[in-house]
């Protein structure tokens, strides 16, 4: 078991409770979908997993180690193994910086680490080119600025940046929500292929059940901070499903 969440609650103010007693175990190499609508607490969960948000109740442990947001030295090791992709690829890249600078920021922070897919002694630009190739982009793109790239290309750059430290857990917060349908599928395919190659765990947060069904083996459903359902993809039509899940499935099915 790699990621264990136990009784996690998060309260913003007295009246707003973002998460209520979430318990979840995710094993290595698994891909799990977290489905919920806005306000369901799914983004809060992502931020807590990344150590960006403090929490009081419950515990989050990764590979046996407790995640404490304030402890910078323990976070450093943790962040190397946990990375995140965000929804809006436009705002995750600094418009003033060329692609390669944004791309190499994580590697630059962990100078002692050299990922297995990069040979020793590469220059910075060679590293950037290599990373771009991995996510299926033209390697000439390293010198461009974000404004010159399409939404899908920018999302690929974000993915390249996130996997550059070879994380064992990748948290994706609605990575395809703002993309066109054809591009959306390409990004999902890329994630799937990367997961197959590196065996990383993927936590895929989305409101799109169809995308989750494509990528994930297991799905949990959040509603107003509560985990209302958890099931393997094969049991998606099981009669035990929560009414809310059923409604979501009905909305997502084509026939």
């Amino acid at each position: 078991m790699s990621l264990v969440i136990e009784g996690l609650s998060k309260q913003y103010t007295k009246s707003i409770q973002a998460l209520k007693h979430i318990s979840l175990t995710v094993s290595d190499g698994e891909s799990i979908g977290i489905v919920g609508e806005s306000g369901s607490g799914k983004s809060t969960l992502a931020r807590i997993l990344l150590g960006l948000e403090p929490y009081k109740e419950g515990s989050v442990t990764y590979k046996g180690k407790l995640i404490v947001p304030k402890n910078r030295s323990s976070l450093r090791a943790y962040r190397k193994s946990v990375q995140m992709i965000f929804q809006d690829s436009t705002s995750t890249l600094n418009p003033k910086l060329p692609i390669w600078k944004s791309l190499l920021e994580p590697l630059d922070n962990y100078k002692e680490f050299s990922p297995s897919f990069l040979e020793q002694g590469l220059t910075k630009l060679e590293k950037a080119e290599k990373l771009l190739e991995i996510v299926g982009l033209d390697k000439e793109m390293f010198s461009r600025y974000p404004v010159e790239l399409s939404g899908g290309q920018k999302q690929r750059v974000s993915i390249a940046r996130a996997i550059s430290l070879e994380p064992s857990l990748l948290v994706c917060d609605e990575p395809t929500a703002s993309l066109d349908m054809t591009i959306q599928v390409q990004i999902l395919q890329l994630l799937k292929e990367l997961q197959r190659k590196t065996n990383m765990t993927i936590l895929f947060i989305s409101h799109d059940i169809r995308a989750v069904a494509y990528l994930c083996e297991r799905m949990i459903v959040l509603k107003e901070g509560l985990m209302v359902d958890e099931f393997k993809m094969a049991d998606i039509y099981h009669s035990d499903r929560h009414p809310y899940t059923k409604a979501l499935i009905k909305a997502a099915s084509i026939d």
């Binding site: 349908m181 054809t182 599928v185 999902l188 993809m233 998606i236 039509y237 499935i249």
Partner: peptide, 24 residues
Amino acid sequence: KKLCSCLLALPAKKSIQKKRAYSV
């Protein structure tokens, strides 16, 4: 054709036991 091929589908109700079906 391209557009339709990119339409993700939920697993089909019957074939679910055998294999997850994607329409990609």
